[in-house]
Amino acid sequence: MKAESQIAKLKRKQSELEAHAGRPDDWTSDDDDKEARNTSLAQTIYADNRKRARTAKADLEKLGPLQPAEERADRWRLCAAAQPLYNQPSDAAVYRANAAAFRTFKRRLVATVRRRRLEDAARQRLTAALYAEKLAAWVREVERIEALPKSRQRAAKDREFYEKVFPEIRRSREERERFNRAGRLIKSDVEMEEVMDGIQEQENEKQKLLSLAVIPPPMLDEQRRARVFLNRGGRIAEPLVLHDDLANQNVWTEAERQTLDERYLQHPKQFHALSAALERKATSECVRHYYLSKKQQKYKERLKKARTRGRGRGGPHPCAVCQTQLEHHGQSRPLPAAHAASYGLSERDLPGDARVCAACRCRSVKRRYSHVKCPIPTCPTPKFRVKRLRPLPS
């Protein structure tokens, strides 16, 4: 066991000597001491990276030829030897220059910030004092106006009117007056509890109003008010030129116009569906073309005609009940075989495409609900003519 431990110590010593021999000539023990004193994780990582970089650079420098005394080192050494070691941001020259500049004007910056804060505090105190003075003057003026006989008569008249319309206002006023009277003369514990409850309620109401109040931001000083930001990002210097350019960009062919007209009758004002039918047009282009051409193309009138034609299709046909000749299907409704008995017809004699006119259908509905009376006794409508939808609640 002793022999093995001695062999391990010798091997460790050999590795340390080899590492020491591989270090460059300018290596000092101060670097190791500094790295050992690093306590933070970031500094430990930086130190380890520097050590690895020095080791790699030392290995590469061994490969280069010996430099002559009369020549410069960068002409005979390899390119890797001229590369910088691993640096952190504080090692950069720009960082050091910024730190030096900050140390130069730090005192002036702190003095400026302190002076501005003192000025803001003084201005806020002055504004608060001015507001308190004006508020006191306003309160005195309001009290003077309310003390006038005419104002008292008008207030009493208005209070009487509103208390008639809103009885809760009168109750709240009476409770407040009773509370003020009870506050002067308290004869029992019950009255004391009522007074305490009233005080607590008033305090809660006050806190509620304070929570709902919005404190406006303080006014800026003259120097800050002088700074104005003008947003010219969306400013259009020549709107007419832009309008002409858009007219040249949004060009519609005759085939695209025809497709839009046909699709509009199927999907009115559904521009996403219209643009889906056009390969080279976006939804915004369809919207713009519609509003620029709707007066000339008369889309709404064409849509009304198309819907009217849709309701009137079907051609001439007779009514299955009164045999009246009708012009189109818009004047009648289909007559199912299950409803033939309500019209006095037989299901076997009823054709498959039978239709009934509006007049015959209304007479059938009236006969069907002729036994139903109006559920309201005071209804002026004649009886046996109202369709009762559902029973009244009991």
Rank of each mutant, 00 (worst) to 15 (best):
127 T>I: 14
55 T>A: 13
342 S>N: 03
280 R>K: 12
278 L>Q: 06
389 L>K: 15
193 E>C: 00
6 Q>M: 11
294 K>S: 11
237 A>W: 02
332 S>K: 00
196 M>R: 09
250 N>V: 14
380 P>N: 00
319 C>P: 10
278 L>D: 12
105 F>K: 03
339 H>R: 09
145 I>Y: 10
50 R>K: 11
243 H>G: 00
91 D>I: 03
301 E>L: 14
166 F>A: 07
327 E>K: 09
58 A>P: 02
314 G>M: 01
54 R>K: 10
394 S>M: 13
327 E>V: 10
264 Y>F: 15
300 K>F: 09
370 S>I: 14
154 R>M: 10
84 P>D: 15
354 A>Y: 07
27 W>R: 04
270 Q>W: 01
245 D>L: 15
215 I>L: 10
237 A>D: 15
319 C>Q: 08
16 E>K: 14
168 E>W: 02
105 F>V: 14
72 R>D: 07
216 P>V: 13
108 R>C: 00
254 E>M: 08
252 W>M: 03
330 G>D: 07
352 G>P: 10
281 K>T: 05
197 D>N: 04
308 T>Y: 02
221 D>N: 15
29 S>D: 05
17 L>M: 11
17 L>G: 06
138 W>E: 11
89 P>L: 06
389 L>Y: 02
47 A>V: 01
137 A>N: 08
62 K>G: 13
390 R>V: 15
246 L>G: 06
353 D>M: 04
24 P>K: 01
343 Y>Q: 02
310 G>W: 01
51 K>P: 00
19 A>I: 03
124 Q>P: 00
117 R>L: 06
241 V>M: 14
338 A>W: 02
145 I>F: 15
236 I>H: 05
24 P>T: 05
1 M>C: 04
4 E>I: 13
60 L>E: 12
367 R>D: 07
110 V>R: 07
159 R>L: 14
357 C>R: 03
291 Y>M: 09
235 R>Y: 15
378 T>V: 02
346 S>W: 02
141 E>C: 03
259 T>R: 11
1 M>L: 06
77 R>Q: 15
66 L>C: 00
